[in-house]
Amino acid sequence: MIRFSDVSKRYPGGQEALSNVNFHLLPGEMAFLTGHSGAGKSTLLKLVTLIERSSRGQVIINGQNLSKLPRRRIPYHRRNIGIIFQDHQLLFDRTVFDNVALPLVIAGVPSNEIARRVRAALDKVSLLNKEKSYPITLSGGEQQRVGIARAVVNKPPLLLADEPTGNLDPDLSWEIMQIFEQFSQVGVTVLVATHDLDLIKRMSNRRLVLEQGRLIQGGEA
């Protein structure tokens, strides 16, 4: 589902943010991406979502070689990835329903279908009763669950989460991880970037550990 082959990323005028990264995540696999700040976690996620392109090597997502993907195809590539942000990135002038519906609206799903799928997604994160609320009235954990509902409403084969529990207490973090676990069990590939080591210890998933741009654990030679 995600394959990195000898991937390096050098920012203009800077040092290498990633060097010779090799790994392969299978469909339905859930893995943690860890490492200190500046180890290259964000850069790796940016390469997957095509916010950045690799300097060397190949990133292959769902069989598609990203270095060959033209700019105008990027939106369609991103529709196959559910992204969960540390700061949720919800739109505060819209209701929970409208926030979760956004990926479907973008994809041109008919409106009756939208309502059905938004409610299904909100149901999965136990927020069905909040669909008419505005994000500002929700707690941090609830906002993050709205973010997750928005990421999965499109049923993408791949979920990326960037520090999804960064602002949450341990119980809420655990709850969020359980939700990700459920998605991986139904075949969604999940990659969670986090430095919450306590949380990772409680889970038995594969770990990809980055240090100064090198994958020192969980990768392939």
Partner: peptide, 16 residues
């Protein structure tokens, strides 16, 4: 701006 960034991240085309 923030809204545009979010829409681009979740796959909104330039036309959209």
């Amino acid at each position: 701006r923030a809204e545009i960034v979010v829409i681009k991240l979740i796959g909104g085309t330039d036309a959209f």
